[in-house]
Design a protein around this nucleic acid. Structure first.
Lengths: 110, 110
DNA sequence: CCGATTTGTTCTATAATGTAGAGTAAATCC
DNA sequence: GGATTTACTCTACATTATAGAACAAATCGG
């Protein structure tokens, strides 16, 4: 990592999805949540790779769930936001807001 | 790029710095603006590499300025936000806000 | 006018993040 | 137990992020 804990846009979205759906959120529901709210499509690979990274950095924690009694209901990995993740989210948001403040994001003339 | 025009956090900050300082902003002032507002340090390499990328994608436009009559006052590259950049900024912000909406970003218990 | 100094940009190398989709695993249904 | 469904892992590669040295162009002082 750099000097500071910065967050790519996708990491930011995934972290927020975890926060929204905790403590039950897992791969498929997280993916659906992001797609539904942002309208962008999320590939499975991108999602799980990012979840792994977030977990390694200690920003989310995962816990194996029980299988559910339904077709294809194999055990899921449930995610929750860790304290460090919560902090990093707040910092990233603060940085963006500090830069957005008072900006009128229209293209320049000339 | 992916399916959609997504924005890394740093790209997002740089684009906003350009929007803030246009039409006069250039390397050094953009760098100072980001450091002052966000408190994070910005290396020169990171900044110029990102500006190049944003320019190649048509999100900012650059124009060579005149040298200014002061010690070390060599010609600068002035940046402005392009229409596409403005659009991408708005979209990225909208995605983040859609995910932030109603979120209480506290760590989960358990 | 030339070497030192100052400001600004480019180049080089490497690490971290983002992406897509095939592959594997574990459950239920018949 | 084979087909089907849901979930997660793996592989390979593209893009973005980072640091700092190198290079360029201006003024200043003598």
């Amino acid at each position: 990592m750099s000097e500071r804990d910065s967050l790519g846009e996708f990491e930011h979205l995934v972290l927020l999805a975890v926060a929204r759906l905790q403590p039950e959120g897992y791969g498929t529901t997280l993916r659906r949540e992001i797609e539904a709210r942002t309208g962008r499509s999320v590939s499975v690979g991108a999602l799980y790779a990012t979840l792994d990274r977030l977990e390694r950095k200690g920003w989310v924690s995962a816990e194996a769930g029980e299988p559910t009694p339904e077709r294809g209901g194999r055990a899921k990995r449930h995610y929750q936001l860790a304290a460090a993740g919560s902090r990093v989210l707040a910092e990233s948001r603060a940085r963006l807001e500090a830069m957005w403040e008072g900006v009128d994001a229209r293209p320049g003339r000339a």
